[in-house]
Structures are given as structure tokens and as C-alpha cells.
């Protein structure tokens, strides 16, 4: 442990604490309070209603759908985004020809403004005009094309694919940076010992990157859970409620229907659910460490 002065810690952490307290916690505490009041745009004199907004949401039948969708969306995007992101990072770390340009090109989806990316994908999924169905019909994989975003059975997977396309470069970037910290001598030693590439990956690279992978999975979980633009523009939570997640619900109830109190309640529930999800990861991380030790 390094010896240090308290003043340095506070000087280093202070700006962060101040900003988050004022800009995030103060408003969020306001939201928490609001969730106990019947606040709405057309009711400027709200009354204290206790847990009745919570009861209303729990008994509406919508809540279960939103929870289920949020889970499917978050887990689907996080899993695919990090898997693909890691694979691409490994590829880009191989010193292959043209990899410099590739590193820049591969970041393109992530650079594209979110609103535009969503509009682009909505257009690509268009049942008649979209390039995806043109491809399917052209290759004979489908006769009439598939209305990806208009069927309850395919809408969720379609929005997940679009989000993964948009988000995987972030994971690639993080993993690529982390790969530089993997000890090359250890890899070379393993190579000399005759370990296959796969062995080296599992025995040397993955353990060395464990911390970064865990942090990134947690991070992308949080970012994905609250990712609003993509679904809002692609489907507005439809068809019916097939892609409604917490952020789209909060926006729709609050800004679409002027019911601020209920939107606040959804906001509080959203934070609670995400906390549970993240806590679950932390626990899984602990048991994952044991499993890996056995392997």
C-alpha cells in the first residue's frame, strides 16, 4: 500500500463526487419522491399517494412484459456485443495486413449518430424496400420477405441485432486496449511449450483479461439497459408491447402521456431492477473465479 495524504484523495475524487451529487443524485432523489405523488402535467397540485402508483404498475400486466423484454434485450445485446467485440479485437490484434485501417473502419457503426443508425436500420428492415429482405428474396431464402419489426416473434431479435451492430465496436475498443496489457512473454512461453492457439487463449489471454471483461460486461449491461434511441425509433416499443423496455416505457408514460408521477415510478423500478441485475453479475463473477480455477 502506498502512503498518501487524505487531501490528495479528496482533490482527485472531489470533482466527480460534486458533479454526480448535483447532476444525478439530486434529480434522482426528486424522482424517487415524485413516485409517491400523483404528479402529472395536467395536475399541477399533486397529492401524496403512498405506494399506489407502484401498485397500479404491478397490477397492470404491463410491468411483467417490460421486465421480461428488458431482460431479453439486455442479456441478448450484452452477450452478442461482447462475444463479437472480443472476437474482432483478437482478429485486429494479429498484425494482419490492413489492420490499421480496419481499426478505424470497424469503429464506424459506433461513430454514427444514434438517431441516424436507428433510422438506417428501420429502413434496412423495411419489408418491401429494405435491403435485408431484398437479399432474402433475391437468394430465394424467402418468398415474400419478412416484416422483421412488425411481428411479435421477430421484433426483439431484430432490434437486438441492430443494437449489437451499433455497440460492438465499443467492446472491441476496450478489449483491444486490454489485449496490449497481456504479458507477451507468457504467451510466447506457452507457444514454446506447444500450446495451441485455443489453449493460449483460454489459459493465458482470458485469465489476464478477466478483470477488464467483467468490468466491460457490467458496463455494457448498464448502458444497454438504458439504451433508448434504437428501440424508440425502430418500433416505439411495438408491435403491441413486444419490444417495450424500461426507458421506452418511461418516455412514453412521461412525455407521451404527461403522467410524470407514473414515469417516475417506472424510473425508480428501472434503477432497482438494473441494480439487481448488476448485483447478480458481481455474484456470478465470484463463482466464475472458482470455476476457472478448476479448469
Amino acid at each position: 500500500m502506498i502512503k498518501t495524504d487524505k487531501w490528495m484523495i479528496w482533490a482527485f475524487v472531489g470533482p466527480t463526487v460534486l458533479l454526480l451529487a448535483v447532476m444525478m443524485y439530486y434529480p434522482m432523489i426528486g424522482t424517487l419522491i415524485e413516485s409517491f405523488y400523483s404528479t402529472s402535467f395536467i395536475n399541477p397540485k399533486p397529492e401524496f399517494v403512498g405506494f399506489s402508483l407502484y401498485n397500479k404498475i404491478f397490477s397492470s400486466g404491463n410491468f411483467g412484459i417490460v421486465v421480461r423484454n428488458s431482460l431479453a434485450w439486455t442479456i441478448g445485446v450484452v452477450f452478442l456485443q461482447n462475444l463479437i467485440g472480443f472476437g474482432v479485437a483478437l482478429l485486429l490484434n494479429q498484425r494482419l495486413p490492413g489492420q490499421g485501417i480496419m481499426r478505424a473502419l470497424i469503429l464506424l457503426p459506433w461513430i454514427l449518430p444514434g438517431v441516424v443508425a436507428a433510422i438506417l436500420w428501420r429502413f434496412m428492415y423495411d419489408p418491401q424496400l429494405g435491403i435485408i429482405n431484398s437479399f432474402l428474396i433475391g437468394t430465394g431464402l424467402s418468398n415474400t420477405g419478412i416484416a422483421w419489426l412488425a411481428q411479435e416473434s421477430t421484433a426483439m431479435i431484430a432490434v437486438i441485432i441492430a443494437a449489437v451492430w451499433k455497440g460492438f465496436p465499443f467492446s472491441t475498443l476496450v478489449f483491444l486496449a486490454a489485449l496490449q496489457n497481456v504479458d507477451r512473454e507468457q504467451i510466447e512461453a506457452a507457444t514454446v511449450d506447444g500450446a495451441s492457439a485455443l489453449r493460449r487463449l483460454f489459459d493465458v489471454v482470458l485469465p489476464a483479461m478477466r478483470k477488464v471483461i467483467v468490468v466491460n460486461v457490467i458496463l455494457t449491461t448498464i448502458l444497454t439497459f438504458n439504451y433508448f434511441d434504437m428501440i424508440w425509433i425502430l418500433t416505439r416499443g411495438g408491435p403491441r408491447d413486444a419490444t417495450h423496455i424500461f426507458p421506452t416505457k418511461i418516455y412514453q408514460v412521461g412525455f407521451g402521456q404527461f403522467r410524470f408521477g407514473e414515469a417516475a415510478t417506472y424510473g425508480v423500478l428501472s434503477v432497482l431492477m438494473l441494480s439487481v441485475l448488476v448485483a447478480f453479475y458481481f455474484i456470478a463473477q465470484g463463482s466464475g473465479r472458482n470455476k476457472r480455477a478448476k479448469a
Binding site: 448498464i222 438504458n226 426507458p247 424510473g267
Partner: peptide, 27 residues
């Protein structure tokens, strides 16, 4: 106290923007 703050940093990232934008706007 640092562990606590780190926990609060993570938690802050979980706040949905749609739910807090009006108070931020007021400030």
C-alpha cells in the same frame, strides 16, 4: 468511503435520463 463512492458512481450510471431530464433542465 471510497468503496461507497465507487458504488454510488456505478449506481448513478443506472439512472434513466428520461426520468431526470426535467430536474436537470430546471437547474
Amino acid at each position: 468511503v471510497l468503496s461507497l463512492i465507487l458504488g454510488l458512481v456505478v449506481l448513478a450510471q443506472m439512472f434513466p435520463h428520461a426520468a431526470i431530464i426535467i430536474p436537470i433542465y430546471k437547474m
